[in-house]
Design a protein around this nucleic acid. Sequence first.
DNA 1: CTTGGGCGTTCCACTCTGTGAAACCACGTT
DNA 2: AACGTGGTTTCACAGAGTGGAACGCCCAAG
Lengths: 258, 258
Amino acid sequence: MVESTSQTIATVERAADVLLLFAKPNNPHLGVTDIAEQLTLSKAAVHRILASLRSRGFIELIEESRRYQLGAASLSLGVAYLARIDVRQIALAELQQLSLVSKETATLSIRTGDERIYVDQIRPEREIVMSVPIGVPFPLHAGGSSKAFLAFLAPDEQVRYLAKQMVSVTDKTIIDAGKLREELAEIRQRGFASSFGERQAGAASLAAPVFDHTGSPAAVISLSGPADRFKDEIDDCVPLLLAATARVSRRLGYNPNA
Amino acid sequence: MVESTSQTIATVERAADVLLLFAKPNNPHLGVTDIAEQLTLSKAAVHRILASLRSRGFIELIEESRRYQLGAASLSLGVAYLARIDVRQIALAELQQLSLVSKETATLSIRTGDERIYVDQIRPEREIVMSVPIGVPFPLHAGGSSKAFLAFLAPDEQVRYLAKQMVSVTDKTIIDAGKLREELAEIRQRGFASSFGERQAGAASLAAPVFDHTGSPAAVISLSGPADRFKDEIDDCVPLLLAATARVSRRLGYNPNA
DNA sequence: CTTGGGCGTTCCACTCTGTGAAACCACGTT
DNA sequence: AACGTGGTTTCACAGAGTGGAACGCCCAAG
């Protein structure tokens, strides 16, 4: 949420809420009444908002059913968002190599506020692979990639985060601030985080931060797989992961000796 | 644009226009005054719109420079848009196979109004490859994928389209309605379209429609490459392309004998 | 170091836009 | 044929959104 108290426009926030409904899983198309009910708006208001978003290509009308769905402008925004994330281009070859050699799924996450999202994933060619949801936010305490961010944030930011009420994502998610603080110290010492079912039941992962020229974590790279299989691969994967993140960090201007 | 005369909300359209500015190429971040000038709005209005979009995650503020950039909600929309396009999942394996065998770039386009956009591409592993811009709209008369759509639209829709004033995309784009009509007839006869620099100078492509259960073109699959190289590969690529589109059409419920 | 320019942010009087209840229309179901 | 539901449109009204102006901050030029 906006930290400042800048004046906002309620009508624009309503329209954004309508768009975000379509971004939720399993909502490929929605009707006017449905949207009105979910957002507690009048049907007239929803209809006008949809007509406005249609005029700019964010929403399309399905003529046959008179229901609405996301339009091509939504894709343009998503593509433009990814295009502005420089670290994606820099990291792509490393993700491909990591996935190829480890035969597991390699991912790249970036931070947005107190959450992080996957912005890329490379899956190996094998029958059973992990697949992560691109664009879905996860809190900074749930899972390997999240903890790899949190451990290397500035100390005051970690203190602020740990003071929050943390919520479980699975029954393995660590939400006790004391336990988490200890684990973050271990992560900083080792240089990487691991997770067994903290973000996704049945999955295991390794994750390490990529630093930028200021020494801040710009992104996180992870390897993950089904827990039963991945647990035997961790020892081999750790050096591969750390080597990859070191190379990407260097390309972002990070000087580890500074 | 909206065909109907539904009442829209000017404030929502303004906000959408602001978002679309960020979706334009080479606009990773923008300032308030810049946006105000480009859209002929007051700085106060732009500021309120940005604050509203920030509150929902569509826009982020870069603290250091006080400039704005797209936020993670933009990615969510883009991902949700792609997720609702069923034909992408169905066609993916075929695109991969096409690219592997032909060693050229395979793409999938869908139609949106009188334009079409690439929603997927698979590039071959070689040094020089074609790369297409995902999410960017192109008119239905410019390039192989566009013509493959136009040729198989309902006759009344083709007449309506050809009555429009058509604009060149390159100096090879066909904009004479008579010539285009003839070519569309040839495309229907052959089952595929080709293009030499009509959408992108120096590029050549082959494209064929994928039909759905109603017999309408649901998508178009293409192969493309640098013109100098691709021109010698066309004869080998045509049967590969047609076989792939036939398989995808069948999976969409198309019965060619109906 | 001082000054000026430009940009982002906030304020406030004002107007016109966006509102929602209600009506209407279309379609599907009984 | 009647009814229920959902989408679309209408209109009187109230307050939300407006933009010009002012303010604060930062940076560049002299």
